[in-house]
């Protein structure tokens, strides 16, 4: 009997199932590949980067893709200071990953707790909390973020905080809706009947049942955040040079749009592919975590 239970490790099963469904879902597999490559570049960029992404080479300014000199080949061309576009794209992945992950962790944590409390407590507190959410949602996200960064000032750390502290509203809405549904389930009533305290019911019985919606939403929000960061940096309200970001590269490229098309084309492709990877991964995650959809292919 004990041997039987020991031979059924549930956690490994979940992991194996995840890998198995991944293999059957080309979209999920593509998403995972893209995200893995971007994360690896962010981690090990300096080791694989062919040129210095910040130090320029004034003898190699505005060179078209494929140009090479003594220092090596410029695969995707060079910019106005003779910096290699390919190396800068690798360096820029670091900011995108950092902003995407950290901001989403901040906003997800705040939003989940906010929605949890609002939906669980209900009544007047819920109405008040949701009116605050309405007020924040009424100002389109990007405009809100643009205005705040204008007031607070730009920079990588500030930007992460701003995106994290404004992005939570979406989670709050969704999680509150989920809590309202779960709150009425029999197992929650049973927990009360067993004499569990409200806080325990909220954290141990309700939270685990709404967290999968939050995870799926988080995947979508990573994409939204990466796009928001690039827009802000492009507008000059986000990360400042010499930090390399894809948005800043596009802002540089825009000034030389008449002559150096590669300066605008490649960083944009990097953003699009990254966001596409995150979106694909999110789609797969939704199907995987939602038992109603699972197995329908």
């Amino acid at each position: 009997m004990t041997a039987d239970i020991a031979s059924l490790p549930p956690r490994r099963n979940a992991l194996l199932r995840a890998i198995a469904t991944m293999l059957h879902s080309p979209v999920g597999a593509t998403g995972t590949c893209i995200v893995t490559v971007v994360v690896l570049l962010a981690l090990f960029g300096p080791q694989v980067s062919p040129h210095d992404p910040i130090k320029g080479n004034l003898r190699a300014r505005f060179e078209a893709p494929g140009y090479s000199d003594a220092s090596g080949i410029y695969r995707l061309g060079s910019d106005q200071l003779g910096r290699d576009i390919f190396s800068r794209i690798i360096a820029g992945s670091r900011v995108s990953v950092l902003v995407g992950v950290v901001s989403v962790l901040i906003s997800g944590t705040i939003g989940v707790l906010y929605g949890l409390v609002s939906g669980f407590v209900g009544g007047r507190l819920d109405s008040l909390m949701m009116r605050i959410v309405d007020g924040l949602l009424a100002v389109p996200f990007i405009i809100l973020v643009v205005a705040i960064s204008g007031v607070v000032g730009a920079g990588l750390g500030t930007l992460i905080l701003i995106l994290g502290l404004t992005g939570w509203v979406t989670y709050a809405r969704v999680i509150r809706g989920e809590v309202l549904k779960v709150r009425e389930q029999e197992y929650v009533i049973a927990a009360y009947a067993l004499g569990q305290r409200r806080l325990v019911v909220m954290l141990r019985h309700i939270l685990p049942n709404v967290i999968s919606s939050a995870i799926v939403l988080a995947a979508v929000q990573v994409g939204v955040t990466v796009l928001a960061e690039s827009s802000l940096s492009f507008l000059g309200l986000g990360v400042k040079p010499p930090t390399v970001t894809w948005g800043l590269m596009l802002s540089d490229g825009r000034q030389y749009i008449n002559s150096a098309w590669w300066m605008t084309t490649f960083p944009g492709i990097a953003i699009t592919v990254t966001v596409l990877g995150v979106v694909f991964l999110g789609d797969w995650l939704r199907d995987f975590l939602d038992p109603n959809v699972r197995g329908r292919g």
């Binding site: 596009l250 749009i257 699009t272």
Partner: peptide, 18 residues
């Protein structure tokens, strides 16, 4: 549609300008 959602709108604008 996936491409349209993932593309930053300002980049699409720059590409159209080019």
């Amino acid at each position: 549609a996936s491409l349209g959602t993932a593309m930053p709108s300002f980049w699409l604008g720059l590409m159209l300008i080019i």
